[in-house]
């Protein structure tokens, strides 16, 4: 547990007035509010810090306590005991907790607050003035491999002890979200249920690069196949395919295999294309005979 400099978080100094604190808090809250920073976990953390700082510094009693013990919060009980001894003539074995009545047991119950806040000011706080009515949304992340979303798949997920049968349509994309209405928390006082939002986190476990419905791959072909033409066998998502390489194929040439790409989301039997880029691999470690033959070939070209 580390000391947290609430003044630094709000960008103010210790002599700040109540108005300064309010102004600084408002400015920071506008900047880091989670609703204006979607999908930004850092902003969310920062917003919690800013709120915590405001919770302490905007309350004169909390601020006084923080200013008094602040950095030395770990030794605060010693200070407190000392002052008690001075004031009351050495009464020992009194409460060990330096902050007496404000301590509400651990402070870790409310994850909106840091451990530091918890140990100084107790768990709760006066934040969260908005009453709940609609049930909370549940957000879940489903990790899948790219090869798994090539075909429509049925899965049973367990969310909060409820089993949900989910059909994952072929072709879902990384980061795509689906909303399952009414599978969130129950509403309060007759409010509607929240939703379950499932975000797909897709890891590419294939050798293809995916761009929407199309797939891309670089294929190595040897010099002789490129020059003279020939047959090659390549792997696609739907199995092996034999291809004819045309004679005198140049390096970097692209070939399109229609319908061998990725399935299109929620469109039955519709597929994207597979784009292959030929990369010609030149032979290495030539023998003397090969070198002679290449010399002959080069002379034929230059003469």
């Amino acid at each position: 547990m580390e000391f947290i400099d609430y003044y630094k978080i709000l960008g103010i100094d210790k002599s700040a007035t109540e108005a300064d604190i309010k102004k600084a808090y408002r400015k920071m809250a506008r900047k880091f509010h989670p609703d204006v920073n979607p999908n930004d976990k850092q902003a969310e953390v920062k917003f919690k810090e800013v709120n915590e700082a405001n919770e302490v510094l905007s309350n004169p009693e909390n601020r006084k306590k923080y200013d008094k013990y602040g950095k030395d919060w770990k030794h605060a009980d010693q200070y407190d005991q000392q002052s008690r001894q001075q004031n009351y003539g050495g009464s020992r074995n009194q409460q060990q907790n330096p902050f007496g009545q404000s301590y509400q047991g651990g402070g870790n119950e409310d994850s909106d607050f840091s451990d530091f806040f918890g140990s100084m000011f107790g768990g709760g706080g006066r934040r969260g003035n908005q009453s709940k009515f609609r049930g909370q949304d549940f957000n879940a992340e489903l990790k899948l491999n790219l090869s798994e979303v090539y075909k429509t798949d049925k899965r049973t997920l367990t969310v909060n002890r409820k089993n949900i049968r989910l059909t994952i349509p072929a072709g879902v994309t990384d980061g795509q979200e689906i909303k399952i209405k009414g599978y969130g928390a129950d509403g309060v006082n007759g409010g509607p249920k929240g939703d379950l939002n499932i975000k797909f986190n897709i890891t590419n476990d294939t050798l293809f690069v995916r761009d929407g419905k199309n797939l891309y791959k670089t294929i190595d072909i040897d010099l002789y196949t490129a020059l003279l033409g020939g047959d090659i066998t390549i792997d696609t998502m739907s199995g092996q395919v034999k291809l004819k390489v045309a004679p005198e194929t140049q390096n970097g040439v692209k070939v399109k295999l229609k319908g061998k790409g990725f399935p299109v989301y929620k469109k039955d039997d519709e597929f994207g294309d597979l784009y292959l880029t030929y990369q010609i691999v030149l032979p290495k470690d030539l023998t003397d005979q090969e070198k002679d033959l290449f010399v002959q070939l080069s002379k034929l070209r230059t003469s």
Binding site: R26, H33, D35, V36, N129, Q130, F133, R134, D137, G191
Partner: peptide
């Protein structure tokens, strides 16, 4: 309609947490 409750909650958070009025919320 209950489908509008979720966006409404977001609007109310912006209003209550950041003092933003309806026109400001629309812009945001």
């Amino acid at each position: 309609h209950e489908d509008l409750i979720s966006p409404l909650e977001k609007m109310l958070r912006l209003h209550q947490d950041l003092n933003i009025n309806a026109a400001g919320i629309d812009t945001i």
